[in-house]
Nucleic acid binder design. Sequence first.
DNA 1: CACCATGTTCCTTG
DNA 2: CCAAGGAACATGGT
Length: 310
Amino acid sequence: MAIPDLQHPAKARVARLYWPAVGDYLPGVPELPEVEVLVRSLAPLLTGRTVSAVHVRRPKLLAPTSTRQLTRALVGGRFLGVARRGKYLLFTLQSLAQPAPLLVVGHLGMTGRMFLRPAGTPTTKHAVVVLKLGQEDFVFEDARGFGRFTLDTGALGKLGPEALGPEFTVPYFAQALKRSSQAVKVKLLDQSLVAGIGNIYASEALFRAGLSPRSPARRLKAEQVSRLWRAIREVLDEAIGWGSTVRLDYPGTARRDRLFYYGTVEGEFGTERLRVYDHADEPCPRCGTLIARVVQAARSTFFCPVCQRK
DNA sequence: CACCATGTTCCTTG
DNA sequence: CCAAGGAACATGGT
């Protein structure tokens, strides 16, 4: 299937902010590419910095770690690095409390954000954790509270291979899909099968591969599995590339957070990126047929009924 | 005001 | 034990 030209869409539109300023929330949730871009931007800002104090505003998001445990572990600690596993952020620190490097596991949930801001800035309404780093504060805020910031690493063990990693191979993918009668779209969201894909890029990958989201996973032919595997890597790689080419301004003022893009609202934030997600009843960029929206496993799926026949 | 959106976890059912 | 399906969680937006 010919891959439509993403860089020069026939009908250029302007995107809306992926993570707008607080008080201006729009649909959209961070997946692997957004977390990767965030990790790359946070790593140089945090590495080497020492935590002088910890303020916990919403202890629930640390569970099962207590405020006291997190504080004891982090105060006096020094950041060694920031990495990513699936949609999780991994912060490693040299703690005063123990000789071995300490791992803090973060997750943005649906509305989480992490950024640095000058020390002394008033705490925002949805702040979960604030780490004092001398001249600056590292802030994790989350309006809806599905995110995490914890010493508990249990969730990591349940993750399948990284979507962009060497262990996610075509043979592995084919084997994993063969075991399920569920729709392929639903399986793409299964973090134990492959880690990092969420609702947005699942629809995008299936569109790129020209496959129906409703095909039962085990019915895909070898050639279709290969195409989907390739589409997943391309879609995620491209999204990371877009994010990392954008200047990384951290929030503080509205309209300066330019990290992530998607959507169709007119604005000054860049060019439309996504081809089917949230585009119900708009023309398919490839054939012009109206994009359909269906619900699978209680999540919206967007696809072109013509380009993505069973 | 009722309902929607969403990632993850937990619970139930087969 | 596993696969599948659905509820629960939380809360701003519509």
